[in-house]
């Protein structure tokens, strides 16, 4: 009986899709509307700067491009982590997971630095509608990255203690979906906020 069926970590489903993966896809669908609404708010307010600084006064596009590149690279390391575990190399997987977390952390560090600079230049949450929408949109993205980092570290630790179950690849894949989504959202945010000039 049991021999014929691999352990029930992958229970049979009606569609053959894994439950956790399907749930993550659904959640990410919801997240699209979440970020979409914040991005809409930003687009509505990007020129409502009042007496405060404007985006042209503040944005340092080369700097943010580099931190965006770092985040983008973390998607690559995430792919490598997944492919390692699928090849059965858990040690390599843990290394790549740590690398991904490290790149994410670098991005967050960059964001913290950017926020501090903006505050010094006179843009805070309460300066203007532009300030509110900028900080809250990018802040929520940062929070998503942070949660992602926690999950990556969690995976790494659990894997070291052999607590990911007999097959590590599934949780890694699910967290990977989340991580890639957060990266893609950043591409959209970066394009909308930094690259499209405000009028």
């Amino acid at each position: 009986m049991s021999a014929a069926h691999p352990p029930a970590e992958h229970p049979h489903t009606s569609t053959g899709l894994d439950n956790a993966k399907l749930a993550m896809w659904a959640f990410l669908g919801s997240e699209c509307l979440f970020f979409g609404s914040f991005i809409s708010t930003y687009l509505l307010y990007r020129n409502v700067t009042g007496d405060g600084p404007t985006s042209a006064d503040l944005y340092d596009i080369p700097y943010t491009s580099i931190s965006s590149f770092v985040l983008l690279m973390s998607s690559l390391t995430m792919v490598l982590a997944l492919s390692s575990v699928q090849n059965g190399d858990r040690r390599a997987m843990r290394i790549w997971l740590m690398a991904t977390a490290f790149l994410g952390l670098t991005f967050i560090g960059g964001q913290v630095f950017e926020f501090t600079t903006f505050v010094e230049e006179g843009l805070t949450l309460s300066t203007s509608a532009f300030g509110s929408s900028f900080f809250v949109l990018t802040g929520f993205h940062g929070a998503h990255v942070t949660i992602g980092i926690l999950m990556l570290l969690g995976l790494t630790v659990m894997s070291s203690f052999g607590r990911l179950g007999p097959d590590d690849s599934r949780p890694v894949e699910v967290v990977g979906l989340y991580w890639h989504f957060v990266d893609i959202v950043w591409i959209v945010i970066f394009t909308v906020i930094y690259l499209i000039p405000s009028g």
């Binding site: 509307l33 979440f34 307010y45 409502v48 009042g50 949450l125 309460s126 203007s128 809250v136």
Partner: peptide, 27 residues
């Protein structure tokens, strides 16, 4: 998520002085 965003914005306005809905700040 759509109302979630609206509620976050309201909360930031009320608690942290953000300007999502304050017409005095041009919102």
């Amino acid at each position: 998520p759509v109302i979630g965003v609206a509620l976050w914005e309201l909360m930031f306005d009320r608690l942290f002085g953000a300007n999502f809905f304050d017409p005095a700040a041009g919102a």
